[in-house]
Nucleic acid binder design. Structure first.
Lengths: 242, 242
DNA sequence: CAGTTCATATAGCGTTGCTATAGGTGCTAG
DNA sequence: CTAGCACCTATAGCAACGCTATATGAACTG
Protein backbone atom coordinates (compact mmCIF):
# COMPACT_ATOMS: atom_id res chain seq x y z
CA UNK A 1 0.00 0.00 0.00
CA UNK A 2 2.92 2.31 0.56
CA UNK A 3 5.80 3.17 -1.71
CA UNK A 4 8.58 2.37 0.74
CA UNK A 5 10.42 0.01 -1.53
CA UNK A 6 12.75 0.44 -4.39
CA UNK A 7 11.82 3.76 -5.89
CA UNK A 8 13.60 7.02 -5.18
CA UNK A 9 11.86 9.40 -2.79
CA UNK A 10 10.93 11.81 -5.53
CA UNK A 11 8.97 9.17 -7.36
CA UNK A 12 7.45 7.92 -4.13
CA UNK A 13 6.23 11.41 -3.37
CA UNK A 14 4.72 11.81 -6.82
CA UNK A 15 2.89 8.50 -6.64
CA UNK A 16 1.73 9.05 -3.08
CA UNK A 17 0.40 12.50 -3.98
CA UNK A 18 -1.35 11.16 -7.06
CA UNK A 19 -2.90 8.29 -5.13
CA UNK A 20 -4.10 10.46 -2.27
CA UNK A 21 -5.40 13.04 -4.70
CA UNK A 22 -7.32 10.40 -6.59
CA UNK A 23 -8.82 8.81 -3.48
CA UNK A 24 -9.64 11.93 -1.53
CA UNK A 25 -13.27 12.62 -2.30
CA UNK A 26 -12.80 16.32 -2.72
CA UNK A 27 -11.22 16.71 0.70
CA UNK A 28 -7.95 18.52 1.07
CA UNK A 29 -4.75 16.47 0.91
CA UNK A 30 -2.08 17.49 3.42
CA UNK A 31 1.64 17.33 2.97
CA UNK A 32 1.86 15.18 6.08
CA UNK A 33 -0.43 12.58 4.54
CA UNK A 34 1.66 12.55 1.41
CA UNK A 35 5.03 12.34 3.11
CA UNK A 36 3.81 9.63 5.47
CA UNK A 37 2.48 7.50 2.63
CA UNK A 38 5.70 8.07 0.68
CA UNK A 39 7.75 7.14 3.72
CA UNK A 40 9.74 10.38 3.79
CA UNK A 41 9.75 13.51 5.90
CA UNK A 42 8.69 17.02 5.10
CA UNK A 43 12.00 18.56 4.00
CA UNK A 44 12.37 15.93 1.29
CA UNK A 45 9.18 17.13 -0.30
CA UNK A 46 10.29 20.76 -0.21
CA UNK A 47 13.76 19.91 -1.46
CA UNK A 48 12.39 18.29 -4.59
CA UNK A 49 9.30 20.33 -5.32
CA UNK A 50 9.73 23.67 -3.60
CA UNK A 51 6.29 23.71 -2.06
CA UNK A 52 3.02 21.87 -2.04
CA UNK A 53 1.84 23.49 -5.23
CA UNK A 54 5.05 22.48 -6.93
CA UNK A 55 4.37 18.86 -6.09
CA UNK A 56 0.81 19.16 -7.34
CA UNK A 57 2.06 20.79 -10.51
CA UNK A 58 4.32 17.82 -11.06
CA UNK A 59 1.40 15.46 -10.55
CA UNK A 60 -0.65 17.54 -12.93
CA UNK A 61 2.13 17.45 -15.49
CA UNK A 62 2.03 13.67 -15.42
CA UNK A 63 -1.75 13.75 -15.65
CA UNK A 64 -1.52 16.15 -18.54
CA UNK A 65 0.73 13.75 -20.41
CA UNK A 66 -2.04 11.20 -20.14
CA UNK A 67 -4.60 13.80 -21.19
CA UNK A 68 -2.59 14.84 -24.22
CA UNK A 69 -1.97 11.21 -25.12
CA UNK A 70 -5.71 10.66 -25.09
CA UNK A 71 -6.27 13.71 -27.25
CA UNK A 72 -3.63 12.78 -29.78
CA UNK A 73 -4.60 9.12 -30.09
CA UNK A 74 -7.81 10.18 -31.71
CA UNK A 75 -6.28 12.73 -33.99
CA UNK A 76 -5.66 11.25 -37.40
CA UNK A 77 -9.20 10.73 -38.65
CA UNK A 78 -8.56 13.20 -41.45
CA UNK A 79 -11.69 15.18 -40.61
CA UNK A 80 -10.73 17.97 -38.23
CA UNK A 81 -14.25 18.62 -37.00
CA UNK A 82 -14.71 14.96 -36.17
CA UNK A 83 -11.45 15.10 -34.29
CA UNK A 84 -12.67 18.14 -32.38
CA UNK A 85 -15.70 16.14 -31.35
CA UNK A 86 -13.47 13.36 -30.09
CA UNK A 87 -11.23 15.78 -28.27
CA UNK A 88 -14.28 17.19 -26.52
CA UNK A 89 -15.45 13.73 -25.49
CA UNK A 90 -11.98 12.74 -24.38
CA UNK A 91 -11.79 15.89 -22.30
CA UNK A 92 -15.06 15.08 -20.55
CA UNK A 93 -14.11 11.44 -20.05
CA UNK A 94 -10.79 12.44 -18.57
CA UNK A 95 -12.54 14.75 -16.13
CA UNK A 96 -15.06 12.14 -15.08
CA UNK A 97 -12.44 9.43 -14.79
CA UNK A 98 -10.10 11.43 -12.58
CA UNK A 99 -12.21 14.20 -11.14
CA UNK A 100 -9.77 15.21 -8.40
CA UNK A 101 -6.90 15.48 -10.82
CA UNK A 102 -9.12 17.34 -13.25
CA UNK A 103 -10.14 19.81 -10.57
CA UNK A 104 -6.52 20.50 -9.74
CA UNK A 105 -5.85 21.01 -13.44
CA UNK A 106 -8.89 22.99 -14.56
CA UNK A 107 -10.86 23.85 -11.43
CA UNK A 108 -8.21 25.84 -9.63
CA UNK A 109 -9.37 29.15 -11.03
CA UNK A 110 -8.07 32.40 -9.60
CA UNK A 111 -8.58 35.89 -10.87
CA UNK A 112 -5.99 37.07 -13.36
CA UNK A 113 -3.92 33.93 -13.13
CA UNK A 114 -5.05 31.05 -15.18
CA UNK A 115 -3.36 27.66 -14.97
CA UNK A 116 -0.76 27.03 -17.65
CA UNK A 117 -2.61 23.84 -18.37
CA UNK A 118 -5.50 25.80 -19.80
CA UNK A 119 -3.25 27.46 -22.33
CA UNK A 120 -1.86 24.05 -23.29
CA UNK A 121 -5.28 22.53 -23.75
CA UNK A 122 -6.30 25.58 -25.74
CA UNK A 123 -3.25 25.11 -27.91
CA UNK A 124 -4.19 21.51 -28.63
CA UNK A 125 -7.65 22.55 -29.72
CA UNK A 126 -6.37 25.44 -31.77
CA UNK A 127 -3.92 23.18 -33.52
CA UNK A 128 -6.75 20.96 -34.66
CA UNK A 129 -8.96 23.92 -35.54
CA UNK A 130 -6.20 25.25 -37.73
CA UNK A 131 -6.57 22.15 -39.86
CA UNK A 132 -10.28 22.73 -40.04
CA UNK A 133 -9.67 26.33 -41.06
CA UNK A 134 -7.19 25.20 -43.70
CA UNK A 135 -9.87 22.87 -45.05
CA UNK A 136 -12.27 25.79 -45.23
CA UNK A 137 -14.58 24.34 -42.60
CA UNK A 138 -14.34 27.16 -40.09
CA UNK A 139 -16.32 30.35 -39.93
CA UNK A 140 -14.36 32.03 -37.14
CA UNK A 141 -10.75 32.41 -36.17
CA UNK A 142 -9.27 29.15 -34.87
CA UNK A 143 -8.05 30.87 -31.72
CA UNK A 144 -11.44 32.31 -30.87
CA UNK A 145 -13.07 29.01 -31.68
CA UNK A 146 -10.65 27.17 -29.45
CA UNK A 147 -11.26 29.53 -26.55
CA UNK A 148 -14.99 29.26 -26.90
CA UNK A 149 -15.06 25.51 -27.26
CA UNK A 150 -12.67 24.97 -24.37
CA UNK A 151 -14.66 27.28 -22.11
CA UNK A 152 -17.85 25.35 -22.80
CA UNK A 153 -16.00 22.05 -22.52
CA UNK A 154 -14.60 22.91 -19.11
CA UNK A 155 -17.93 24.29 -17.95
CA UNK A 156 -19.76 21.13 -18.93
CA UNK A 157 -17.13 18.89 -17.37
CA UNK A 158 -17.15 20.80 -14.10
CA UNK A 159 -20.93 20.66 -14.02
CA UNK A 160 -20.90 16.91 -14.61
CA UNK A 161 -18.26 16.33 -11.96
CA UNK A 162 -20.29 18.32 -9.45
CA UNK A 163 -23.29 16.12 -9.99
CA UNK A 164 -23.93 12.83 -8.21
CA UNK A 165 -22.72 9.95 -10.35
CA UNK A 166 -26.21 8.52 -10.62
CA UNK A 167 -27.59 11.73 -12.08
CA UNK A 168 -24.85 12.39 -14.57
CA UNK A 169 -26.36 12.71 -17.98
CA UNK A 170 -23.88 12.79 -20.81
CA UNK A 171 -26.47 14.32 -23.07
CA UNK A 172 -25.52 17.62 -21.49
CA UNK A 173 -22.09 17.10 -22.98
CA UNK A 174 -23.14 15.94 -26.44
CA UNK A 175 -25.73 18.66 -26.78
CA UNK A 176 -23.37 21.44 -25.78
CA UNK A 177 -20.60 19.96 -27.86
CA UNK A 178 -22.65 19.86 -31.03
CA UNK A 179 -23.91 23.37 -30.40
CA UNK A 180 -20.39 24.71 -30.08
CA UNK A 181 -19.01 22.86 -33.07
CA UNK A 182 -21.93 23.89 -35.17
CA UNK A 183 -21.50 27.50 -34.18
CA UNK A 184 -17.87 27.44 -35.18
CA UNK A 185 -18.12 25.49 -38.37
CA UNK A 186 -19.04 26.73 -41.80
CA UNK A 187 -20.75 23.46 -42.64
CA UNK A 188 -23.83 22.11 -40.98
CA UNK A 189 -22.10 20.13 -38.28
CA UNK A 190 -20.75 16.60 -38.02
CA UNK A 191 -23.00 14.97 -40.56
CA UNK A 192 -22.42 15.18 -44.25
CA UNK A 193 -24.77 16.78 -46.77
CA UNK A 194 -24.31 20.04 -45.04
CA UNK A 195 -23.47 22.47 -47.80
CA UNK A 196 -27.09 22.91 -48.70
CA UNK A 197 -28.51 23.53 -45.26
CA UNK A 198 -25.50 25.54 -44.19
CA UNK A 199 -26.27 28.02 -46.87
CA UNK A 200 -30.00 27.97 -46.42
CA UNK A 201 -29.90 28.59 -42.69
CA UNK A 202 -28.45 32.02 -43.32
CA UNK A 203 -30.73 32.69 -46.23
CA UNK A 204 -33.82 31.47 -44.43
CA UNK A 205 -32.95 33.53 -41.36
CA UNK A 206 -32.32 36.57 -43.51
CA UNK A 207 -35.60 36.14 -45.35
CA UNK A 208 -37.40 35.66 -42.08
CA UNK A 209 -35.88 38.78 -40.62
CA UNK A 210 -36.67 40.71 -43.73
CA UNK A 211 -40.31 39.67 -43.58
CA UNK A 212 -40.52 40.33 -39.89
CA UNK A 213 -39.00 43.78 -40.22
CA UNK A 214 -41.47 44.74 -42.93
CA UNK A 215 -44.40 43.36 -40.96
CA UNK A 216 -43.58 45.45 -37.91
CA UNK A 217 -41.48 48.54 -38.27
CA UNK A 218 -38.76 48.51 -35.68
CA UNK A 219 -37.72 51.76 -34.10
CA UNK A 220 -34.27 50.54 -33.20
CA UNK A 221 -32.78 51.82 -36.42
CA UNK A 222 -33.19 55.15 -38.14
CA UNK A 223 -34.83 55.13 -41.54
CA UNK A 224 -31.55 55.58 -43.35
CA UNK A 225 -29.95 52.85 -41.32
CA UNK A 226 -32.89 50.59 -41.98
CA UNK A 227 -32.67 51.21 -45.70
CA UNK A 228 -29.05 50.18 -45.87
CA UNK A 229 -29.71 47.31 -43.50
CA UNK A 230 -32.45 45.94 -45.74
CA UNK A 231 -30.22 46.32 -48.75
CA UNK A 232 -27.54 44.22 -47.10
CA UNK A 233 -30.15 41.77 -45.95
CA UNK A 234 -31.27 41.38 -49.53
CA UNK A 235 -27.73 40.87 -50.67
CA UNK A 236 -27.28 38.11 -48.12
CA UNK A 237 -30.61 36.53 -48.95
CA UNK A 238 -29.82 36.27 -52.64
CA UNK A 239 -26.29 35.05 -52.14
CA UNK A 240 -25.18 31.75 -53.53
CA UNK A 241 -22.51 30.18 -51.44
CA UNK A 242 -19.57 28.82 -53.32
CA UNK B 1 -12.27 51.29 7.78
CA UNK B 2 -13.56 48.78 10.30
CA UNK B 3 -17.07 47.95 11.32
CA UNK B 4 -16.67 48.62 15.02
CA UNK B 5 -19.51 51.02 15.34
CA UNK B 6 -23.21 50.73 15.51
CA UNK B 7 -24.01 47.44 13.81
CA UNK B 8 -24.54 44.14 15.58
CA UNK B 9 -21.65 41.68 15.44
CA UNK B 10 -23.44 39.37 13.04
CA UNK B 11 -23.73 42.14 10.47
CA UNK B 12 -20.20 43.27 11.12
CA UNK B 13 -18.96 39.76 10.44
CA UNK B 14 -20.93 39.55 7.21
CA UNK B 15 -19.63 42.86 5.94
CA UNK B 16 -16.07 42.17 7.01
CA UNK B 17 -16.14 38.80 5.27
CA UNK B 18 -17.62 40.31 2.14
CA UNK B 19 -15.07 43.10 2.09
CA UNK B 20 -12.09 40.85 2.64
CA UNK B 21 -13.41 38.40 0.09
CA UNK B 22 -13.79 41.16 -2.46
CA UNK B 23 -10.37 42.63 -1.81
CA UNK B 24 -8.35 39.45 -1.51
CA UNK B 25 -6.91 38.92 -4.93
CA UNK B 26 -7.57 35.23 -4.98
CA UNK B 27 -5.72 34.63 -1.73
CA UNK B 28 -7.36 32.73 1.07
CA UNK B 29 -9.28 34.71 3.67
CA UNK B 30 -8.81 33.52 7.25
CA UNK B 31 -11.31 33.64 10.07
CA UNK B 32 -8.80 35.62 12.10
CA UNK B 33 -8.68 38.35 9.48
CA UNK B 34 -12.46 38.49 9.39
CA UNK B 35 -12.98 38.56 13.13
CA UNK B 36 -10.27 41.19 13.58
CA UNK B 37 -11.79 43.47 10.96
CA UNK B 38 -15.23 42.93 12.45
CA UNK B 39 -13.91 43.71 15.90
CA UNK B 40 -15.07 40.46 17.46
CA UNK B 41 -13.45 37.23 18.55
CA UNK B 42 -13.57 33.78 17.09
CA UNK B 43 -16.42 32.21 19.11
CA UNK B 44 -18.79 34.95 17.98
CA UNK B 45 -18.28 33.86 14.41
CA UNK B 46 -18.94 30.23 15.21
CA UNK B 47 -21.90 31.07 17.38
CA UNK B 48 -23.66 32.83 14.53
CA UNK B 49 -22.55 30.88 11.50
CA UNK B 50 -21.46 27.47 12.74
CA UNK B 51 -18.23 27.41 10.77
CA UNK B 52 -16.29 29.30 8.16
CA UNK B 53 -18.23 27.81 5.31
CA UNK B 54 -21.44 28.85 7.00
CA UNK B 55 -20.30 32.44 7.07
CA UNK B 56 -19.27 32.27 3.44
CA UNK B 57 -22.63 30.74 2.57
CA UNK B 58 -24.30 33.70 4.22
CA UNK B 59 -22.18 36.10 2.23
CA UNK B 60 -22.98 34.15 -0.90
CA UNK B 61 -26.68 34.29 -0.08
CA UNK B 62 -26.49 38.07 0.01
CA UNK B 63 -24.52 38.05 -3.23
CA UNK B 64 -27.06 35.76 -4.77
CA UNK B 65 -29.84 38.18 -3.90
CA UNK B 66 -27.97 40.76 -5.92
CA UNK B 67 -27.43 38.27 -8.71
CA UNK B 68 -31.07 37.29 -8.84
CA UNK B 69 -32.12 40.92 -8.69
CA UNK B 70 -29.95 41.56 -11.73
CA UNK B 71 -31.44 38.60 -13.53
CA UNK B 72 -35.01 39.55 -12.76
CA UNK B 73 -34.66 43.21 -13.55
CA UNK B 74 -34.17 42.29 -17.14
CA UNK B 75 -36.94 39.74 -17.18
CA UNK B 76 -40.13 41.29 -18.44
CA UNK B 77 -39.21 41.98 -22.03
CA UNK B 78 -41.82 39.50 -23.15
CA UNK B 79 -39.32 37.74 -25.39
CA UNK B 80 -37.96 34.73 -23.54
CA UNK B 81 -34.98 34.20 -25.81
CA UNK B 82 -34.00 37.82 -25.51
CA UNK B 83 -34.29 37.52 -21.76
CA UNK B 84 -32.08 34.47 -21.84
CA UNK B 85 -29.48 36.50 -23.66
CA UNK B 86 -29.64 39.18 -21.04
CA UNK B 87 -29.48 36.66 -18.23
CA UNK B 88 -26.32 35.29 -19.80
CA UNK B 89 -24.77 38.72 -20.07
CA UNK B 90 -25.80 39.61 -16.54
CA UNK B 91 -24.25 36.38 -15.32
CA UNK B 92 -20.95 37.20 -16.97
CA UNK B 93 -21.00 40.80 -15.77
CA UNK B 94 -21.70 39.68 -12.23
CA UNK B 95 -18.76 37.31 -12.37
CA UNK B 96 -16.38 39.93 -13.73
CA UNK B 97 -17.60 42.58 -11.31
CA UNK B 98 -17.15 40.46 -8.22
CA UNK B 99 -14.80 37.67 -9.22
CA UNK B 100 -13.98 36.51 -5.71
CA UNK B 101 -17.61 36.26 -4.73
CA UNK B 102 -18.38 34.55 -8.01
CA UNK B 103 -15.65 32.00 -7.42
CA UNK B 104 -17.05 31.21 -4.00
CA UNK B 105 -20.48 30.83 -5.57
CA UNK B 106 -19.72 28.97 -8.79
CA UNK B 107 -16.07 28.01 -8.66
CA UNK B 108 -16.13 25.92 -5.53
CA UNK B 109 -16.64 22.67 -7.40
CA UNK B 110 -16.29 19.35 -5.63
CA UNK B 111 -17.11 15.90 -6.92
CA UNK B 112 -20.65 14.78 -6.23
CA UNK B 113 -21.60 17.87 -4.30
CA UNK B 114 -22.55 20.86 -6.27
CA UNK B 115 -23.30 24.18 -4.67
CA UNK B 116 -26.96 24.86 -4.05
CA UNK B 117 -26.44 28.11 -5.87
CA UNK B 118 -25.99 26.27 -9.14
CA UNK B 119 -29.38 24.65 -8.78
CA UNK B 120 -30.90 28.05 -8.06
CA UNK B 121 -29.31 29.68 -11.09
CA UNK B 122 -30.40 26.72 -13.16
CA UNK B 123 -33.92 27.21 -11.87
CA UNK B 124 -33.91 30.84 -12.93
CA UNK B 125 -32.85 29.91 -16.43
CA UNK B 126 -35.30 27.04 -16.65
CA UNK B 127 -38.11 29.31 -15.55
CA UNK B 128 -37.40 31.63 -18.43
CA UNK B 129 -36.90 28.77 -20.86
CA UNK B 130 -40.29 27.42 -19.91
CA UNK B 131 -41.79 30.59 -21.31
CA UNK B 132 -39.81 30.11 -24.49
CA UNK B 133 -41.05 26.55 -24.70
CA UNK B 134 -44.63 27.70 -24.15
CA UNK B 135 -44.16 30.10 -27.05
CA UNK B 136 -42.96 27.24 -29.22
CA UNK B 137 -39.48 28.64 -29.53
CA UNK B 138 -37.59 25.75 -28.00
CA UNK B 139 -36.38 22.60 -29.69
CA UNK B 140 -35.23 20.82 -26.52
CA UNK B 141 -36.52 20.35 -23.01
CA UNK B 142 -36.24 23.53 -20.94
CA UNK B 143 -34.40 21.70 -18.18
CA UNK B 144 -31.78 20.30 -20.53
CA UNK B 145 -31.45 23.66 -22.23
CA UNK B 146 -30.99 25.38 -18.88
CA UNK B 147 -28.29 22.93 -17.82
CA UNK B 148 -26.44 23.26 -21.06
CA UNK B 149 -26.62 27.05 -21.20
CA UNK B 150 -25.62 27.42 -17.56
CA UNK B 151 -22.67 25.08 -17.98
CA UNK B 152 -21.38 27.08 -20.92
CA UNK B 153 -22.14 30.34 -19.14
CA UNK B 154 -20.16 29.32 -16.07
CA UNK B 155 -17.33 27.97 -18.18
CA UNK B 156 -17.04 31.20 -20.12
CA UNK B 157 -17.21 33.33 -16.99
CA UNK B 158 -14.56 31.29 -15.21
CA UNK B 159 -12.34 31.49 -18.25
CA UNK B 160 -12.76 35.27 -18.44
CA UNK B 161 -12.08 35.69 -14.73
CA UNK B 162 -8.91 33.65 -15.03
CA UNK B 163 -7.59 35.93 -17.74
CA UNK B 164 -5.71 39.16 -17.12
CA UNK B 165 -8.10 42.09 -17.26
CA UNK B 166 -6.28 43.60 -20.22
CA UNK B 167 -6.75 40.45 -22.29
CA UNK B 168 -10.38 39.85 -21.49
CA UNK B 169 -12.34 39.69 -24.70
CA UNK B 170 -16.09 39.66 -24.27
CA UNK B 171 -16.51 38.28 -27.73
CA UNK B 172 -15.80 34.92 -26.18
CA UNK B 173 -18.98 35.42 -24.21
CA UNK B 174 -21.21 36.72 -27.00
CA UNK B 175 -20.06 34.07 -29.42
CA UNK B 176 -20.63 31.21 -27.01
CA UNK B 177 -23.89 32.72 -25.86
CA UNK B 178 -25.35 32.99 -29.33
CA UNK B 179 -24.19 29.49 -30.15
CA UNK B 180 -25.94 28.05 -27.14
CA UNK B 181 -29.17 29.97 -27.61
CA UNK B 182 -29.29 29.12 -31.26
CA UNK B 183 -28.73 25.48 -30.45
CA UNK B 184 -31.69 25.22 -28.10
CA UNK B 185 -34.08 27.33 -30.13
CA UNK B 186 -36.36 25.92 -32.73
CA UNK B 187 -35.70 26.68 -36.38
CA UNK B 188 -37.28 30.02 -36.97
CA UNK B 189 -38.73 29.92 -40.44
CA UNK B 190 -41.10 32.65 -41.61
CA UNK B 191 -44.10 30.55 -40.60
CA UNK B 192 -43.12 30.10 -37.01
CA UNK B 193 -42.07 33.70 -36.72
CA UNK B 194 -45.26 35.00 -38.25
CA UNK B 195 -47.40 33.30 -35.66
CA UNK B 196 -45.87 35.33 -32.90
CA UNK B 197 -46.32 39.00 -32.34
CA UNK B 198 -44.53 41.32 -34.72
CA UNK B 199 -41.78 42.39 -32.36
CA UNK B 200 -41.10 38.81 -31.37
CA UNK B 201 -40.58 37.60 -34.90
CA UNK B 202 -38.13 40.42 -35.58
CA UNK B 203 -36.04 39.64 -32.55
CA UNK B 204 -36.14 35.90 -33.01
CA UNK B 205 -35.26 36.16 -36.67
CA UNK B 206 -32.46 38.57 -35.87
CA UNK B 207 -31.06 36.17 -33.29
CA UNK B 208 -31.31 33.31 -35.75
CA UNK B 209 -29.65 35.29 -38.48
CA UNK B 210 -26.93 36.40 -36.15
CA UNK B 211 -26.20 32.82 -35.15
CA UNK B 212 -26.43 31.64 -38.74
CA UNK B 213 -24.02 34.31 -39.88
CA UNK B 214 -21.59 33.23 -37.21
CA UNK B 215 -21.89 29.62 -38.28
CA UNK B 216 -21.72 30.18 -41.98
CA UNK B 217 -19.23 32.68 -43.22
CA UNK B 218 -20.77 34.92 -45.82
CA UNK B 219 -18.67 36.86 -48.26
CA UNK B 220 -21.51 38.95 -49.56
CA UNK B 221 -20.57 41.82 -47.30
CA UNK B 222 -17.19 43.38 -46.75
CA UNK B 223 -15.77 43.06 -43.28
CA UNK B 224 -16.59 46.66 -42.42
CA UNK B 225 -20.09 46.26 -43.76
CA UNK B 226 -20.51 43.06 -41.83
CA UNK B 227 -19.32 44.70 -38.66
CA UNK B 228 -21.91 47.45 -38.91
CA UNK B 229 -24.53 44.95 -40.01
CA UNK B 230 -23.93 42.82 -36.95
CA UNK B 231 -24.02 45.89 -34.76
CA UNK B 232 -27.44 46.80 -36.07
CA UNK B 233 -28.50 43.19 -35.79
CA UNK B 234 -27.44 43.29 -32.18
CA UNK B 235 -29.39 46.48 -31.60
CA UNK B 236 -32.50 44.92 -33.08
CA UNK B 237 -31.97 41.72 -31.14
CA UNK B 238 -31.72 43.50 -27.82
CA UNK B 239 -34.67 45.80 -28.33
CA UNK B 240 -37.12 45.48 -25.49
CA UNK B 241 -39.46 48.39 -26.00
CA UNK B 242 -42.96 47.48 -27.04
C1' DC C 1 -34.37 38.71 43.09
C1' DA C 2 -33.25 33.79 41.18
C1' DG C 3 -33.31 31.45 36.87
C1' DT C 4 -32.83 31.06 32.15
C1' DT C 5 -31.19 32.25 27.74
C1' DC C 6 -28.53 34.52 24.57
C1' DA C 7 -24.08 36.61 23.16
C1' DT C 8 -19.30 37.46 23.69
C1' DA C 9 -14.47 36.70 25.53
C1' DT C 10 -10.27 33.96 27.37
C1' DA C 11 -7.36 30.57 26.32
C1' DG C 12 -5.87 26.75 23.97
C1' DC C 13 -6.16 22.26 21.07
C1' DG C 14 -4.81 19.84 16.96
C1' DT C 15 -3.44 20.45 12.24
C1' DT C 16 -1.69 22.91 8.48
C1' DG C 17 2.35 24.49 5.16
C1' DC C 18 6.87 25.29 5.63
C1' DT C 19 11.96 25.77 7.29
C1' DA C 20 16.57 26.50 10.04
C1' DT C 21 19.78 23.41 11.09
C1' DA C 22 22.30 19.36 11.15
C1' DG C 23 23.63 14.72 9.82
C1' DG C 24 24.26 11.00 6.63
C1' DT C 25 25.53 9.31 1.95
C1' DG C 26 28.19 8.66 -2.24
C1' DC C 27 31.30 10.76 -5.18
C1' DT C 28 36.02 12.45 -6.88
C1' DA C 29 40.89 14.25 -5.82
C1' DG C 30 45.17 13.88 -3.81
C1' DC D 1 42.70 5.70 2.42
C1' DT D 2 41.07 9.94 3.38
C1' DA D 3 39.61 14.78 2.72
C1' DG D 4 36.50 17.50 0.73
C1' DC D 5 32.35 18.34 -1.59
C1' DA D 6 27.66 18.10 -3.28
C1' DC D 7 23.59 15.99 -2.73
C1' DC D 8 19.90 14.22 -0.12
C1' DT D 9 17.25 13.35 4.10
C1' DA D 10 15.87 13.77 9.19
C1' DT D 11 15.06 16.26 13.76
C1' DA D 12 12.64 19.69 15.69
C1' DG D 13 9.97 23.54 15.62
C1' DC D 14 7.60 28.07 14.00
C1' DA D 15 3.62 30.83 12.72
C1' DA D 16 -0.89 30.56 11.08
C1' DC D 17 -4.93 28.01 10.44
C1' DG D 18 -10.06 26.34 11.73
C1' DC D 19 -12.30 25.45 15.62
C1' DT D 20 -13.92 24.73 20.67
C1' DA D 21 -14.33 23.89 25.97
C1' DT D 22 -15.26 26.87 29.30
C1' DA D 23 -16.49 31.03 31.55
C1' DT D 24 -18.41 35.71 31.93
C1' DG D 25 -21.51 39.32 31.00
C1' DA D 26 -26.13 41.11 29.66
C1' DA D 27 -31.00 40.91 29.09
C1' DC D 28 -35.25 39.14 29.78
C1' DT D 29 -38.73 36.14 32.77
C1' DG D 30 -40.88 34.16 36.73
Amino acid sequence: MSFDGQLPPKMRLLRAAAELLAKSAGAAVSTRQITQLAGVTAPTLYHHFGDKEGLFDAVVAAGFEEYVAGERDFAPSGQPLVDIRRMWDNHVQFGLKQPELYLVMFGNIRPESRPAIVADAEGLLEEMLNKAAAAGQLSVQPREAARSILAANVGVTLMLIAEPVAERNLELSTMTRDAMIFAVSRDQGPDAAAEDSGKSSVVVAAIALNAALQASHSDQLTSSELKLFLEWLHRISTSSTG
